[in-house]
Simulated scan of single mutants.
Amino acid sequence: MTTGAPVPTIGVVVLTMNDRPIEFPKAMASVLAQEGVNLDVVVVGNGCEPELVPPEVRTVALPENVGIPEGRNVGAANVKGDLLLFFDNDAILPERDVIARLAARLGQDPGLAYVQPRIADPDTGVTVRRWVPCLRADATRPGVVTVMAEGIVLMRREAFERVGEWPGHFFLFHEGIDLAWRCWDHGYTGFYMPDVVVHHPAANPARHSVFYRMNARNRVWVARRNLPRVLIPVNLATWALVALWCFRDKDARRDSVAGFREGLQTDCGPRSPMGWGTVVRLIRAGRPPIF
């Protein structure tokens, strides 16, 4: 950051279920070691009283597991700062200036709602496809992006509150697409900074027993909540074709169909379709909202 620039205050939100006794302390230590920023850190216990929390960090204990996006909303309401860092509890900030560099990029451009670092597996250095927030999966190419990898992202609080926070009822998966699209519809953009690296183990999301069902359900919800009506069937047909091609396992296909049906039949939450101007902006940014 430039000399004499005010030191930003960052509200850091970390969730825990007390199920990562080795990874969680390392994650917290890497956050608290950050330099060039003022941090206000809160750990939200999703259905638990947080354990192994450093003494200088506050906690919020929720009586039940409300899911990742709603847990993040609770955390954001309990920290100070014009910027919010949402941080997975098994991630590591390998350098002491990671947050400061991300914050500096937001400070340079008031039109940015969020900035995304490059996420890499600590053992292999590989950035898996789902962590690259652009269609062309070049993990080293910086630029404007229209979605986000939800677990490690720095966001402007003003934008976060203006667009309506995370969709809490999603519980798990694709809340980042929903939030990013709403940011774009309010005139903001996002930016990917691959020169800023964060470490995160490349675990397969399908390890969760609910993955295929919630993955399908939430994709349907994202489309129903955010797209002009004429684009909803196009988006869903595109996703269904890709899913049928990629998910060769019989059980995965069955659960995906069940989730797809659930997404059509259940309440997706408030509908606020993006304007056609936003659709054009997304197309120009390289990611039409049918993918």
Rank of each mutant, 00 (worst) to 15 (best):
11 G>F: 07
11 G>P: 09
36 G>F: 03
40 D>M: 06
41 V>S: 02
46 N>L: 15
49 E>C: 11
58 R>M: 07
61 A>F: 05
61 A>Q: 07
63 P>M: 00
66 V>W: 13
68 I>Y: 14
68 I>L: 15
69 P>Y: 12
70 E>S: 13
71 G>W: 11
73 N>I: 11
74 V>T: 09
77 A>V: 04
78 N>W: 00
80 K>S: 13
80 K>H: 00
81 G>I: 02
83 L>Y: 14
84 L>E: 11
85 L>M: 14
87 F>L: 14
92 I>D: 07
95 E>V: 08
98 V>K: 05
101 R>H: 02
102 L>K: 02
102 L>N: 08
104 A>I: 13
104 A>H: 09
110 P>H: 08
116 Q>S: 09
117 P>C: 01
120 A>Q: 13
122 P>A: 00
130 R>C: 11
130 R>D: 12
137 A>Q: 14
140 T>N: 15
141 R>I: 09
144 V>H: 07
144 V>D: 07
152 I>W: 01
154 L>R: 01
155 M>W: 11
164 G>Q: 01
166 W>G: 06
167 P>V: 08
168 G>W: 04
170 F>E: 03
173 F>S: 08
176 G>A: 13
178 D>M: 10
180 A>Q: 08
181 W>N: 06
184 W>I: 09
185 D>T: 12
187 G>E: 05
194 P>T: 06
194 P>I: 07
199 H>M: 01
200 H>D: 00
200 H>N: 01
200 H>V: 00
202 A>S: 06
204 N>A: 12
205 P>C: 08
207 R>C: 09
209 S>F: 15
212 Y>S: 04
212 Y>I: 07
230 V>A: 15
230 V>Q: 15
233 P>I: 05
236 L>Y: 10
237 A>I: 10
237 A>Y: 04
237 A>P: 08
248 R>V: 12
248 R>G: 06
252 A>S: 09
253 R>K: 00
253 R>Y: 02
257 V>T: 04
264 L>G: 09
267 D>P: 06
269 G>T: 04
269 G>P: 10
270 P>C: 04
276 W>K: 02
279 V>P: 09
280 V>N: 00
282 L>Y: 03
282 L>G: 05
288 P>L: 03
